[in-house]
Design a protein around this nucleic acid. Sequence first.
DNA 1: GACTCTCTTGTACATACGTACTAGTACAGG
DNA 2: CCTGTACTAGTACGTATGTACAAGAGAGTC
Lengths: 191, 191
Amino acid sequence: MTSSRDPEGRRRALLAATVEVVAEVGVARTTHRAIATRAGVPLGATTYYFPTLNDLIAGALEQSGDAWDADLKRWESELRAAQAEIGEGDHAARKLSDVLTQLILGYLADQPRARLECELYLAAGHTPELRPLATRWLLGLREVTGRLTDKNTGYALATLVDGVFLQATVTGEAPPAEQLRAAIERLWVTA
Amino acid sequence: MTSSRDPEGRRRALLAATVEVVAEVGVARTTHRAIATRAGVPLGATTYYFPTLNDLIAGALEQSGDAWDADLKRWESELRAAQAEIGEGDHAARKLSDVLTQLILGYLADQPRARLECELYLAAGHTPELRPLATRWLLGLREVTGRLTDKNTGYALATLVDGVFLQATVTGEAPPAEQLRAAIERLWVTA
DNA sequence: GACTCTCTTGTACATACGTACTAGTACAGG
DNA sequence: CCTGTACTAGTACGTATGTACAAGAGAGTC
């Protein structure tokens, strides 16, 4: 007896399983067998749909990159909405720092995704072919914060957020909301 | 013919080789054989001096942690010296941000070390026994910046620096010095 | 119904790994 | 000189891995 036929479904299931496995054990310890078990498919299916393990992992990371891009779009529009609502007054930085903090906390609440991102960063450190993907991820954030403020402030904010992500990955705990908000407020100086 | 006898030398060579290998390929891909080759010792020597691979890696990371602690001490004393020299005036933040930026750039110039640190962070994400070590690393910096300023500023500065480390690891490039300095200056608001 | 093409599933194989082990070698103390 | 201890060096073994492959099953076309 063979399973129901659904090639596209299997593709998706394999990619989703890969995302989970990578988030749990890291790129280097991700194996065909772990993915197959997680996806509920036989081992052979992995190499049928993706010629090599690297292709499978690359596909999963790329898919996560798309999700991250979507998140970034949402961040930008929410922050723009807040900007429009409140004008340019003194309270602006206060309000905006609040919104950004909440967005960060919301993102980090999805631990596997946050960990996957950090995992990608680290893997990019010694896997040159992952570097473009990781850089795109990094620069995407910097561009958003840059568009909302100016180049220098954008760099500062993005760097701070990257630090928050790193800390969250290491400790597994949520960042201190008020301290984070205060830090963002100090950086958010519109030129 | 056997090699010259120097047990302590071998221990050190093994730890040093482990640091290099981990920095290059990551914790998960570090193997006895790679370490032995790098250290120029036969395979059997690795398990003779360190019962398991994890012991060897843990030893190497701990040693690196000590080096990081020493670096932090140096950072603190240099920043304190700068503080003492310049008083509390308006130029203080300017001068201190300059000094800290240079310290960061200097640290990141030693790429293998910086990469090892980030490698540890990431590995800690899914290896609970590494978490204490990584946290100590993280908190060490935060304590130093906290002592130099105040708790909130310390958090903000340390987080920014962590972000800089992450970015440097991913891109392999030095951070933009002037933008980084400006960001530090904005955060360095003495209470 | 026969053919074919796509997909499924299980197994096989070469390789690399962690670690254990054996045999030998230098140097200490008697 | 002899003996035990600490170290060296090479090899062996069981396991897990990436990937290849063979045998089959479902669905569409004639």
